[in-house]
Nucleic acid binder design. Sequence first.
DNA 1: GACAAATTAGGACGGCTGTCCTAATTGCTG
DNA 2: CAGCAATTAGGACAGCCGTCCTAATTTGTC
Lengths: 199, 199
Amino acid sequence: MQFKKVIMTQPKTRERIEEKADTLFYENGFEATSFADIAEAVGISRGNFYHHFKSKDDILDAVIRRRLAKTRCMLGEWEADAPPKARILSFIRILLTNQTKIMAFGCPVGTLTTELAKLDHVAHERAADIFTLFRDWLAEQFRALGHDDAKALALHLLGRTQGITVMASTYHDEDYLASEVAALEGWLDALSDKPSLKG
Amino acid sequence: MQFKKVIMTQPKTRERIEEKADTLFYENGFEATSFADIAEAVGISRGNFYHHFKSKDDILDAVIRRRLAKTRCMLGEWEADAPPKARILSFIRILLTNQTKIMAFGCPVGTLTTELAKLDHVAHERAADIFTLFRDWLAEQFRALGHDDAKALALHLLGRTQGITVMASTYHDEDYLASEVAALEGWLDALSDKPSLKG
DNA sequence: GACAAATTAGGACGGCTGTCCTAATTGCTG
DNA sequence: CAGCAATTAGGACAGCCGTCCTAATTTGTC
């Protein structure tokens, strides 16, 4: 019954640590988030951490793995009986879905990747993998729409959304965000007419 | 002769502290840069700091003020006997001028603003002022080109460049950077033909 | 050269960091 | 209920953080 024990008991505390660490890393940054912060948010003792994770970097790994999984899940949902163009639209509209958090803290993926790059952290590549997940998925959709420069289009769209999150959080301006999302939708529409222009 | 003393002696050490702090904040982040780091880079004692700055936030203020001044200076240079469109092009091409640093650390303005937003730091607005400097200057150029949505165009261009810096530093991909700069130049060209489309 | 001011070096300080250890508690198994 | 494993709490630890103080040194002026 050893197996059952591992499966049944781990999820509770470990899962809660990952969850709280995830949001704290997002809202306050990885470096600025201390063990004490996470412990307080979860409601456990500091010393207890090392039974679940062997270091802070280990928690970061878990958080990134968690985000990768959630992203895969979200992309999967967008594929449900929707044509490629509608799928790309779903991607664009997370800017509106997560509007409040984006205007306060920017993009979870972009800001983490940027911070880890400055820290010369080994996990930087792992964090970039989340971007790669989006990129490859978007490229697949563009390819389905008949574009042969699908990867470049995917990267272009990723960059556009990243820029929007940076400026939206800088000025906390929801009108800017809305108008840029509209512009992005217009770009996607125009793309159908002339399949090789990036605009 | 008190006046002369203040003018002549201050610039040396204080200026060097600001300079080193500026690059360290850029390359490693504000939070991750310690007093010891700056002291070592400048080559002075830690305790000596408080004769020039009264706190770390005070150094941050000085760094931001310094960046504002340098930005104003740069914008001024771009105005030298060049038509508005060429001035905007100068802005776009800093992405190529600073290519190496951007691919390693992203945009100095964007990354600092993002970090300060997460830290809930009072200096966030001051950092955003650097963006505003660019925005207003760009809007002025777009207005000179006959666009009535000049401010929106300026914000759009700022966002585009920010997104490019994020993705370029994520993947360290100079081909992406080059092609996006080309796309941005194409966008600027197309803008001349139909003055009210954002693309 | 004497004197005062500006500048510097070096260390003390309380507090927080990530890490680790140990003892107590809980929960499951037989 | 006994016994064992999993989990927890709490604190010790070395080290670094930003801050502050004091004493020594340098600098410029009369």
